[in-house]
């Protein structure tokens, strides 16, 4: 694999039925490339959590998967309201999700901490009214 494989998909806002399709598609792609199951699983969790955030908070956005020889990079970009207090949002249990999302089993304030737990590097650029860009990297050789 010399050239990195890049996939980009649009994520629709508040479409709870379609939410998770991007993560499922990316996971299938990683599996078909023969990546180890634990890497596929970690990447799927990161994409799914980021996708749910985009669906719930971000007003939709673009999800990008980049696969290179030594790493998988996931980039999510939305033009939503941004994260008011990133430090708080990284704490387990802190959530600003509306009640109808909680009734569906999400919005418990575990998303960003779980993304952090499943990635080797995580960068988040966000500001109120300026959207959020998240970049998570999973290294293939970290599993050894």
């Amino acid at each position: 694999m010399s050239e990195p494989l890049v996939l980009k998909l649009q994520v629709k806002p508040l479409d709870f039925l379609a939410a998770g399709e991007t993560a499922a598609h990316f996971k299938e792609t990683l599996k078909s490339l023969g990546l180890p199951p634990d890497i596929c699983r970690k990447a799927a969790i990161v994409v799914y959590e980021a996708e749910m955030n985009m669906v719930i908070h971000g007003g939709g956005g673009v999800m990008c998967l980049q696969v290179e020889e030594d790493k998988v990079t996931i980039i999510s970009k939305d033009e939503g309201p941004g994260i008011e207090n990133l430090e708080l949002a990284m704490k387990e249990g802190y959530s600003s999700a509306p009640d109808f999302i909680r009734e569906l089993g999400f919005g418990a304030g575990m998303g960003l901490p779980n993304i952090k737990k499943n990635s080797d590097e995580l960068h988040i650029d966000t500001a109120p009214r300026k959207g959020t860009k998240l970049r998570a990297v999973i290294y293939l050789d970290k599993r050894r």
Binding site: G20, P37, E92, L104, G105, N114, K117
Partner: peptide, 23 residues
């Protein structure tokens, strides 16, 4: 709470829930 399932479930484990949606 799927948020908790995503954070704590092991691969190859069994999920028990009373929620019924596609997620």
């Amino acid at each position: 709470l799927m948020s908790d399932v995503l954070a704590f479930a092991l691969a190859a484990s069994l999920l028990i829930t009373g929620l019924t949606n596609i997620q």
